[in-house]
């Protein structure tokens, strides 16, 4: 016989002794007397217990709240990116409307804009769908064609000197008219 089975069998034949002289009624009275004598009442909850009890809410609640929070953060992040994208597009459109290029904008502003545009490119490329990509390829191809045309028709365009002469003539006319 091994020890484990011997122990089980021995304990089954020798149960725990009942405490001698135990009087349940007297025992209850003694406990109740101690409770009354001390004039005890269950302690009221303190602020830190209130705080701790908050964490006894089932963990699933915390998990759901966490998932909700992450979803809100992702949504806000996406919305901010969209706004930034729209702002950058507007800026680029404005610059284009003013007939300027990024290179012509000097100083810090230019650098910031250049950085923003780079970020915009990255964002556009990252979020681009297959159709966007096709559109981008098409646009690039068209731009390339336009560049070539511009290059080939350079000779037909008036030179810088001619343009300055024209402007001077216009200025003189305006001055004459105003006087």
């Amino acid at each position: 016989m091994n020890f484990q089975s011997w122990l089980s069998s021995w304990l089954a034949h020798h149960p725990l002794k009942d405490p001698t002289g135990h009087d349940p009624e007297q025992y209850t009275q003694q406990v109740m007397q101690r409770v009354r004598d001390a004039n005890l009442s269950p302690k009221p909850w303190t602020a830190w217990q209130e705080f701790l009890s908050f964490f006894s809410i089932p963990r699933a609640t915390f998990a759901l709240a966490g998932v909700g929070l992450v979803a809100v953060i992702l949504f806000l992040n996406h919305a901010i990116n969209d706004t930034r994208l729209a702002n950058m597009e507007t800026t680029v459109d404005l610059i284009a409307a003013m007939g300027e290029t990024l290179e012509s904008i000097n100083g810090e502003e230019g650098e910031i804009l250049a950085q923003d545009l780079e970020a915009l490119d990255t964002l556009v490329l990252a979020e681009a769908t297959e159709t966007d990509e096709q559109w981008l390829q098409e646009t690039l191809r068209l731009l390339q064609l336009l560049d070539e045309d511009a290059g080939s028709s350079e000779a037909e365009n008036p030179s810088e000197g001619d343009l300055i002469d024209d402007l001077q003539i216009l200025d003189e006319k305006e001055i004459a008219a105003s006087s």
Partner: peptide, 24 residues
Amino acid sequence: NYEDARDVSQEAFVSAYVSLRNFH
């Protein structure tokens, strides 16, 4: 031994009463 057991268990009952609000 029973004497100690009685005292200690009674003390436990009193403590349980005092902290009853903490009981889940």
